[in-house]
Design a protein around this nucleic acid. Structure first.
Lengths: 100, 100
DNA sequence: CTCTTAGTTCGACAGTCATCGTACCAAGGC
DNA sequence: GCCTTGGTACGATGACTGTCGAACTAAGAG
């Protein structure tokens, strides 16, 4: 029987695909460094608005981030605990090596 | 995108993209379990021959595996040490959670 | 109400991906 | 030589990806 996948439906293929894009790794790295919810626009990416929305959606659908509205902004936070619980060490392995 | 094609240059985007496919994770998992060079055909995948060749090429171009001919077969081995040196913990994080 | 801010939705477009079948090549075995 | 085995190369195809601009929505600020 299929176990009840409660709040955290984490698919490793989705996660790895989401993390395979440098822009999305930048977002995740910033979120991990901030340790507090951050508005989407606070993370600088050299892409258009709609492209940024697209990257945030990919991350959200992979279960890597969660978002909530706050006034005109949308605060984003990294779901580090949930991801770490399912795939220990993965985020650290991907985020630690800062590009030289 | 454009990746440095130096033989021992490991690009995290290429690696994560390579590992985001379940078939390729199966290959890597079998290679990690074998700990000895394995002929390509010894790993069962429910895809055609040319598709299997394609997956092995993606893994090779990401620097995750190395291959060498031996008679009619082609022996494949996981470049675990090199990958671990560049991205410690990544392979373990991706390979440990065996699907249920 | 109007204007600005922050972000989404909707095509559209060029590029890449996974998959396939067929043809092909290389090394042995007969 | 011929044939089998193990794998590659070559299109082709349908699906998906990252990118964009323009139009749109939601919430304040004036």
């Amino acid at each position: 029987m299929v176990a009840a996948e409660l709040d955290s439906e984490l698919d490793l293929s989705l996660i790895l695909h989401a993390l395979s894009d440098p822009h999305r790794r930048t977002i995740v790295r910033e979120l991990a460094a901030a340790a507090e919810p951050v508005p989407c626009g606070a993370i600088m990416l050299e892409v258009g608005k709609s492209t940024r929305t697209h990257h945030f959606r990919v991350l959200r659908e992979a279960g890597l981030i969660s978002q909530r509205r706050e006034g005109t902004r949308k605060l984003t936070s990294l779901r580090k605990a949930e991801v770490d619980a399912e795939f220990p060490g993965l985020l650290d392995a991907v985020l630690v090596p800062v590009p030289v």
